[in-house]
Design a protein around this nucleic acid. Structure first.
Lengths: 231, 231
DNA sequence: CGGCAGTTTGATGTTACTCAATTTAAGTGG
DNA sequence: CCACTTAAATTGAGTAACATCAAACTGCCG
């Protein structure tokens, strides 16, 4: 199946979610193709509180959404995988509530903001689904941060990412590419890199998972899943 | 100004937010009035993962949205004040992502789910605003939970509630009715009741705020605000 | 071969949790 | 109005989880 958002016709990097979204966006946009942007690891793609008339979709690579506090502390709100809309809100709201930066080399598609108000059922449906997912994700993260130990949080993150990657057929087995540094995990889960390291090596000792060479290998996914299941 | 959602014509319990929302909902609903429900403190109003064809608005009193983990842990997602829509998502999604329970005696208005798809600009606008607010609230809470100390979290909660109450003209001075128990604060902020008690008495000693007789008195609101400001 | 960024490990410190006892407040029935 | 009961708040002591600081170690790239 062709993915209209990305220039590359070969499947793999773009999952099912993207297909629905991009088709919609494409339909709205008209016949001229989307703008394409590339960024290098660490590069900032969206600046919080900055307005843009475009809707962004991550086309290839990983990125993360985050906010920065006045004193430099950073909270990562979540990770963007290929096919992800940066934010549903972004469809009708020009002001971004968070920053976005690249984790790997990424490709980002930029569409002119579609006329959401004038649209019919098809887009509405996509919007509702994405809206629900985003909301559900926020609730889960709040719950994990509020009620779970470091082990539970990390297990949650690892299995949650695996689930999302599977949903877009990026992985089949129990391992997947893992571009996150300890710092990212820490900032996403309210921990310190040092403590994340300790928990991960504890996981390694228990034969739960290993991360090496930028690849995460889940040796005992059921147990990881059990640990990381919150609600 | 008359509040169509509530049976009581006297203002005060219903703030500005409700007026916009209720008018909208009323317009969608047609001429027959909304169903009214009352509940006592502690009573559960919405059950997570349960579907309903109605849209709920808190009309009087306080309530809270929460999720419960398998082992009984509870995470409070936020507090509902008079005039609050239970959830924006609720407008087109029959499945509730969280439970809701009453903190005080409450009145809840139930509207038949409006035909969101068929509506024009007016409702769209209200939806966008509410959607943005809900999203912004979730991001703030995630940040507070992920990056802030117990003192900062509690200061954030107290001043945040004050702001929301002021926005609907419920309070003018620096004190407001405070129906939360330590347990609620704890479950909302990822702390234990015991620790919340310690922090609050520390605040008291420093002359920041006092809570007694179900009333919170912010003696040094600027300092509280400074403590609780995250992003 | 340096040099840098990221990770690991150890030692120590702090925050917040747990457990338990005590006090206060809020009802309830006499 | 006063015992009695019950829920909530407070206080103290001990502990666990996680943070902080610092040093050693790894891989990688010029």
């Amino acid at each position: 199946m062709l993915c209209v958002t990305c220039p590359n016709r070969d499947s793999g990097s773009c999952g099912t979610l993207l297909e629905a979204q991009s088709r919609t966006a494409h339909a709205v946009h008209g016949s001229n193709g989307p703008l394409l942007q590339i960024a290098r690891p660490g590069e900032q793609i969206v600046v919080r509180n900055q307005t843009t008339q475009q809707v962004l979709v991550l086309c290839a690579g990983w990125a993360y959404r985050y906010v920065e506090l006045a004193d430099g502390r950073r909270q990562i709100l979540g990770f963007l995988l290929p096919g992800d809309l940066f934010s549903v809100l972004n469809l009708f709201e020009p002001l971004s509530q968070f920053s976005v930066a690249a984790l790997t080399d990424v490709q980002v598609s930029r569409f002119e903001r579609p006329g959401v108000r004038a649209r019919g059922d098809r887009l509405q449906l996509v919007l509702e689904n994405a809206s629900r997912d985003e909301h559900a994700g926020a609730i889960r993260l709040i719950t994990v941060l509020g009620k779970c130990s470091a082990e539970e949080r990390i297990a949650y993150l690892l299995t949650h990412l695996a689930r999302r990657l599977r949903a877009r057929s990026v992985i089949r087995g129990q391992s997947y590419p893992f571009p996150l540094r300890l710092r990212h995990i820490a900032d996403a889960l309210g921990l310190t890199p040092v403590h994340v390291s300790r928990v991960l090596s504890h996981f390694r000792d228990r034969g739960l998972c290993v991360v090496s060479n930028g690849v995460l290998n889940m040796l005992d996914e059921p147990e990881l899943d059990r640990l990381g299941t919150v609600a």
